[in-house]
């Protein structure tokens, strides 16, 4: 149980991100929460692939030993790129919204409703 620390921390990060998205009204803060969720998912992915006493899956000058699982690392790489792209796009949106509305508070960015 205690040795599942990375899983627990990954789940905690996801939850912290979700809490941020639920209670914070600033749009940039919400996007930070989204990035936290993403980081949590990345950590979960990588720690899923860890094998006790494993070495990195690189044969260049590698010591002997069992290798950790490489697929999750490839997936995490993909997810990191997707994450930075999403974050950049969302922040651009927030900047445009601030320029047009004069606020970045989610409570006031609500011309679309009803």
């Amino acid at each position: 149980m205690f040795f599942n620390l990375p899983f627990i921390v990954a789940a905690l990060l996801v939850i912290l991100g979700i809490i941020t998205m639920l209670i914070k009204r600033n749009l940039i803060k919400m996007i930070m929460g989204l990035s936290l969720v993403e980081a949590g998912v990345n950590l979960l992915l990588v720690s899923l692939g860890y094998r006790a006493g494993g070495i990195a899956p690189i044969f260049t000058n590698a010591p002997a030993g069992v290798m950790v699982m490489p697929t999750v690392q490839a997936m995490t790489l993909t997810n990191i790129v997707i994450g930075i792209a999403t974050t950049a796009l969302l922040l651009s949106f927030v900047m445009v919204i601030y320029r047009m509305y004069g606020t970045a508070n989610a409570n006031k960015v609500r011309k679309l409703r009803g």
Partner: peptide, 24 residues
Amino acid sequence: GILYVGVGLEFGVPLFTDMDEYFV
């Protein structure tokens, strides 16, 4: 729900490894 991950899986000891064994 999410923290159940810490209970349901065991860190460092994956259950199936066949696909990654193939890659390695």
